[in-house]
């Protein structure tokens, strides 16, 4: 029985059957009610004003419950997929490569720098013939990553630390920056703080519209 105490013919068939009011309240609480639903609900509430209280109570219940669910799964929803491509022999410098703002911190030996010149600018986004069971090199990994439609390319790397090594060489620590994009609907607020940083996980943003064509347009 609902908070209103109102019964419905359905209740006589099955003890836990829901009433029309239950369904309408659910739609209102969930933001799925249309104009007709609201009209129907108001008609029911005219006869039973306690239904307004039921709406408020269930709204409050859901808000509290949702807050708690958010809290319970907060950590879990930041979990990234494990990297199965190179599970054991991954080079130490390949610390992380994940998501739109993937930042890969590399420590490279100064003498090997000529080999890394290729990372400047936009690497060619062409398919790479790779067996999923093989270990990827960093560049292969990067090329695979760049195949994603939401990744535009790579910005110039930023050197943030130079370390003198005992053998006289230098280790250059730099950050590689991936440029990616997501789409927001016109009526959505830009989730950016005053420093220009996104305030939510970009994966929670809306998906690109018509992925291939839009991606190509943006390129």
């Amino acid at each position: 029985m609902s908070e209103s105490g109102k019964t419905n013919p359905m209740d006589e068939q099955t003890p836990d059957a829901v009433t029309e009011a239950d369904i309408l309240i659910g739609r209102i609480v969930d933001g799925e009610a249309d104009e007709q639903d609201r009209t129907d609900f108001e008609r029911l509430a005219d006869a039973d004003p306690l239904l307004w209280r039921a709406v408020a109570t269930r709204h409050q219940d859901m808000a509290s419950l949702c807050d708690e669910v958010d809290h319970e799964i907060a950590m879990a929803t930041t979990l990234e997929l494990p990297d199965f491509v190179a599970p054991r022999r991954a080079p130490r410098w390949a610390v992380a490569l994940s998501g739109w703002a993937a930042v890969l911190i590399l420590a490279v030996i100064w003498t090997t720098m000529p080999q890394s010149k290729g990372i400047e600018g936009l690497p060619p986004a062409r398919p790479v013939q790779i067996n999923p069971d093989d270990e990827l090199t960093f560049e292969q990994h990067m090329q695979q990553y760049l195949l994603a439609p939401y990744v535009m390319g790579e910005l110039d790397p930023i050197v943030f630390r130079v370390e003198e090594l005992p053998d006289g060489r230098q280790a250059i620590h730099y950050v590689r920056r991936i440029e990616a994009f997501e789409f927001l609907d016109a009526d959505e607020e830009l989730p950016v703080n005053d420093k220009g940083h996104l305030t939510i996980d970009p994966s929670e943003l809306h998906a690109p519209v018509g992925p291939a064509s839009i991606a190509e347009t943006v390129h």
């Binding site: 997929l81 491509v85 994940s98 998501g99 790779i130 994603a148």
Partner: peptide, 20 residues
């Protein structure tokens, strides 16, 4: 087809309800 970026994107799009 083994595209790691696609797998990661797919996971991110669905992991909230998976957690629920």
């Amino acid at each position: 087809l083994g595209d790691r970026a696609a797998q990661q994107a797919l996971w991110r799009r669905h992991r909230r309800w998976v957690a629920a």
